[in-house]
Design a protein around this nucleic acid. Sequence first.
DNA 1: AAGAATGAAAT
DNA 2: ATTTCATTCTT
Length: 887
Amino acid sequence: MAPIRPISTSSPIKNRSSLSLISSRRRSIAPPRHYTFAPNVTPISYPTEPASPSSSVSSSSPQPDGINISHLGPNAGEDIPPSPSNVGSVLPGQSKPRRRTNRKDSVDHIPRPPNAFMLFRQNFVHQKHVPGSIETNDNSLSKIVGNCWRALSVKDKKVWNALAERAKEEHKRKYPHYRFQPKHDPEKKKKRQAAKLAAEKAERERLMREERERQGLPPMPEDQPFDGSGASSSARTLDPYDTEQEREHAMATRRQQVRNRNFLGHRRSSSVPLPSEAYPGYPYSNFGGPAHADPFNFANPAIANASLTNGIAIPTLPSNLGGLSGPTSQWMNNTSVSEEQNPQLGFAAPMQSQAQHPLALPRAGSPVLNLNTNPIPRNSGFGNFSGMSSMGLPGLGSGTMGMRAARQLQLGQLGRRASSTQPVLQHQLNSGLFNFNFAAQNGSGFPQPPYGQFNQPFGNDFGNVGQNEVGFDGFVGAVAEGFTNPFANSANDQTQRTTGIAASPRSAPNSASVYPSSIPPNANWYDIEAVDPMTPITSIHPQTSAPAPHSTISANNSGLLNHAFSFGNDSPSPSIPPNEAGSSAIQTSPKSASAPQSSVNSTFMINNSDNGYVEHSHQHQNQHQPQQSLNPSAGMGMRDSFDFTAFMSSLPGQSQAGTTHNHNVINQDQSQSSDGSHDSYGHHGQLYTTSHTHPGSVMLAQPTPLRRVELPCVAEVPQQDGIVQHTANNNITDNTRLMASTTENSGCASPADVYTPVQTQSYVEGHQKVDSHQTELQQVSTLDGTANLSTVVPVSYDQQQQQHMDGIGYNYGNDYSTYNALYDGSGASGLYVSEQIHGHNNMNQVNVNQNISYDDPWTTPARAQPRSATTNPEQRWDGSGTPIFVQ
DNA sequence: AAGAATGAAAT
DNA sequence: ATTTCATTCTT
C-alpha cells in the first residue's frame, strides 16, 4: 500500500518539541496510487497520495533517535516534519476533546498513551486518506486503517512504533505514577457468558434438529414446563428419546458439541473462518482438512507405499522432490521456487526445499512420512530444523509453542485476536510446515481437555517432531481425552510402541489400542546405526542386550534419538555461507577449525516418566546436552566426514576402554505446568551416561544419581567490539544467525542490519544468569512462493530470555520469550502476524557447550572474517572444559 | 504461575 | 471498528 506519513497540519500542534523524528530533506513524486480495500470493508477504491519507492533510506539522514521515516512517503521529511506533534499530540489531554465514557469522565482520568496503531489511525484520519465523502463512519474507518496498517511494511511500522514508544515515554514523564487499570466489568462478563451459553444451546439444538432430520426422526417435542399433571407429554419432555439408540446418538452429538466448544470456544467474530475454511489444505487436520493432506492417511499413495521395518512405517520417498537434485551445495543455493501444488501435500509449498538435504531429511524409513515428502522452504525449514523457535513460532522446535499461539494458529488467528475482517492465510501453515502443524496438533491443537483451561492439554510435546523424526510418536501420543485418535490401530501404533514415547493413558482414551499395557523393557534401547549425520539413519531397532530396567523410557529413547538426530539437524550450520571457507555451505566449518560447533545440542520435550507413561499430562523438557565441547578435529564441523567413533573418542572425560565410550549427558528434565488438576510435578535434572558400544551406536544408560556438575559454560565471555558473543543459551540467537546468513546468502540486506543482540551475563549467588535480549529487526529472506529467495522479509524479533543455572545441572529457569512478529510463511511483504506472545517458552536453552562463544561474522558490518581460535582464545570454549563431576 | 480474557487508547 | 499494550481473571 501507499505509505502513510505521519503528517498532519490540521491537528492542533501543541507539542512538537521533543518528538521530532523526522528528516526534513526532500520530497519526491510518484504516480498516484489506489487503495483498494477488502470487500468486507468499505468496498471502494480511491486515489491517494503517491508512493515513493525511491525515497529510500539512503536518501535521508537517520534521525537522532535512529528513526528514519523518509521511506514512508513522498513528503516524509519535507518541511513539515511528521513529528508526533503534528500527528496529533501523543499525549493525552492534548488532542481535541472527545467523547468520554462515563468511567473516564473523571477529571483526573489519565488516558493511556496511544499505541502505534492508534497514532497511525489518528494520523490516517487527519490526513483524510479516506475522504469524508466516502466514509465517515468510525468503525469503517477503523477497518480501513486496520487494513492499511497491516499492509504497512515493517519499516514503516517501525516509525509508528517509535512514535508510540516516544509517546509512552512522554506519558511516563508526565504521569510518572500512572498505572493502567482497566476495570473489568462483571456485569458485562455475565452477559457475555450468558450469551455464549445461549448460543451454544441454540447451536446444540440446531444440530440436534438437523441430525434428527437427517435420520428421519420426528422433531423433538418442545420443552415444556413440567406441570405435574403426569400427562404423557410431560413425561416425554423429561425423556425425549424414544429409543436407547436415539438417546445414545443425542449424547454423542452432545459430546461432539462439547468437543467443538472446547476446540472452537474462542472469542471470534463470525467472519473469521474456522480452521477448515481457513486452511483448506491444513494437513492432516482432524477438523475438516482434506484427507489427502494427511500425512498419516494411508490412502495417500505416498503413504500407502510405505514399507515396514521394525514395525515402523517407512514411506517411499517420492522420486521427485521438487525437481531438486545434485549436490547439496546446489540446492542450498538454489533460489528457484515453484509454487506448484505438491501432490503429496495437497497444498502448494515452495519447492525450495530441504528435501534433498541429507541432514534435513529424515533418514530413510523415518516414521515421519511427511518430512520426507514435504518440501520445506529453505529458510523456514532451516529455522525450524535447528530450533524452530527461530521462526518466531514461539518455541516450536526447541521449546513449545505458546499455547495461545498454537491455538490461535489453529483457529486461524495466528497471533492476533479475532478480527472480523482478517482471515488468516493458508500460507501460514506452509512455512511452518509440518512443524507448525505438529505443533498445533501436539502442543495444543487438540481440543482442550475438559478439565483445564487449555493448560497444557498434554504433556506430550512435539518438540521432537520439529527437530527429529521421532516426534511422530509424540503425535500419536498427543491425543486428548475425548478425542478420537485417528491413528489408532494403524501402523503408527507400532511406532509409538517402538520408540517408547508413551502418552498418558489418561489423556489418550484410545491408549488401550495404542499403547501396550507395558512397554517391553528393551524397547527403549536402540542402536542407531550410522550416526554420521550425512548418512541417513536407516534403521533403529531395539537393542537386544543390555536392557534398561527402569530407565525413563521416553526420555532415554527420544533423548537418544534426538541427540543423534541433533547432529544431523544442527550440524549443517546453515549459517555457514557457502562462499566462506569452503565450497559447500554444509560441508565446511564456518569458523575456525578449532572453534566449537554449535552442533550437539538437542532440546526437546517429551513425556517423561519412569514407567513409560505420563500419568499426568505434563510438559516436560529434556535437554540432553553433552557436557563436552565437540572436538572439531574429530570431525564435527566437517559434516561429510564426520566420524562418530572418533568424535566419541575425542570427548573428554570418557572411557576409551574397549569399544565402549561414555558420554556424559545431562538430562535436564524440567517439568512445569499443571496437569489441570493443580498438581505440579517437578522433574529435575538427571545425569545420564551415554555410552556407545560400537561405532555408531549410542545408548543411554540408566540415570545415575544426581551429581554435582560444574558446568563449563559459566565462564564469562567478554564482549568484543562488533562481535556478537554467542554465549550459552543461544539457540535462538543461533537461529538468528541462521536467518542472517540466509539473508546473506540471498544477497540481501547487510548482515549488519540483522540484529543487535545484547547479552549480559552475570552471576547471581553462584548461579549464572544469562540475559539475552534481542530487540532488533531481523531480515529474513524467505520464499514468497512466487519470487525467489532474494525476497527479504524483515521480521521483528524481540526476544528475552533468562536462564539460571545453578551449576548442578538442573533447575533451569528459563523465562520468557516475546515475539513481536511472526513470519507468516507467505513471504509476502507485510504479512506478519504481530501480536506479542507472552509465555514462558519452557525451553531451557542451556546449550552449555555449544555456541558458547564465537565471533559472529554476520553481525559485523564489514562481514568479518571468521577468526581463528587463536585470535581470540578467550572468547572460545576451548573444549577443555571437561565437565567436572563431583560425586 | 501460565495462560486466557479483556479493557482502553482515538475517533 | 481497529491494534497493541497492560492489566485482571481463571485455572
